[in-house]
Amino acid sequence: MHAPGRFRARRLGPGAQAPRWARRPRVAGVRGWLALLGAALAVAAVCAVAVLRPWGAPEPVAPVAVAEGNAAVAASVPPAPLVLEEGARVLVFGDSWVYGSAATVPTLGFAYRLADELGVETVVDGVRGSGYLKPGLDGPAYGERIAALDPALDPDLIVVEGSINDRRLYPAGYRNAVTAAWDALEARYPDAAIVILGPSPQVLPVESPTSSIDTELAELAAARGWWYISPIAEGWITAANYLEVIDTGPIGRDHPSTDGHAYLAARVADAIEAMELQPAIVADAPHDEDPVAP
């Protein structure tokens, strides 16, 4: 556990460059503009055809819903902006990646490093080999572990990570196990904000069940209005940096190295800080600050 501090955004100093993952290619030059013009003309042509041939226009698509228990809930509920006050307590819950496996010492794992990255107090609860379905080496599956959490912990934020350990058991019973675990977590800490951190690829290419788990967790989190972080969708671990992040040796066994944990801590911190910067969505908000009377 780390001492509390102030939530702070890391800002770039004069002359500093943004991290590699924050850079975006720019479209420039005549070819880029010609490509955009061509795309615009193509869209205009399709619209014209749809007007002249209404039978070819697409049918309205109903909002997608996912089943949770016996009820259908909206598949996308905008999450509220994240607010972490000074001295915030953050519970980081997950598997061996949260435990700090393959770091020189577990306390150099990404979950522990978040305390310094974010300037908060962290409480780390990682069990190697565990998942929503799979019991771990040092404890049971997520649901039983959540039931054993101390109600007096009272975290301000909970980050639930993982889990690739369910990939060989997926999909039988997975959605029910996730739903039950998240219901229990909400009931135990009703005042805490919850962020779901999806599985990170331990091997490349990403295994198909791992990708499916990521997609399903994203849908379930969106249905609850929770923030979801997808290291897979955001390309945190690629062929370009895989060996810098993952220790493939007999000790590391495809877990993040010490440097890899430092990298993941920075990425998670960046994602959490971005959530705090998101504007709140207000229903029926006026479009103009100074509306003109008729």
Rank of each mutant, 00 (worst) to 15 (best):
V160I: 11
L185H: 03
V206P: 03
R167G: 00
G198C: 08
R188G: 04
I164E: 04
G173D: 07
L185C: 05
I158C: 09
S163V: 02
A141E: 15
I146T: 05
W182E: 09
P190C: 10
P140F: 03
E144A: 15
R145V: 07
I164Y: 07
V206I: 15
A172W: 03
G173F: 04
I146Y: 09
A152C: 00
A152G: 08
D191R: 12
A147C: 00
A193I: 01
A193H: 03
T179N: 12
P190N: 06
G198Y: 08
P171I: 02
D150T: 11
P140L: 10
D154V: 13
T179H: 05
P201L: 06
A172R: 14
E161H: 15
A172S: 12
E207S: 10
L169W: 09
P209Q: 07
G162N: 11
P190T: 08
L185W: 04
A177W: 08
R167W: 03
A152Y: 00
S200K: 06
D150Y: 09
D150Q: 10
V159M: 01
P199N: 01
I196H: 13
E161D: 11
Y170F: 15
T179P: 01
G173I: 04
A172D: 14
N165I: 02
V206M: 06
A184N: 02
A181W: 01
A181Y: 01
I158T: 13
N165F: 02
P140H: 08
Y174F: 15
I164L: 10
R167V: 01
P209Y: 01
P171Y: 05
D154L: 12
L153P: 07
R168T: 14
S208W: 08
I158A: 13
R145N: 09
P190D: 02
P201F: 06
P171H: 07
I194G: 00
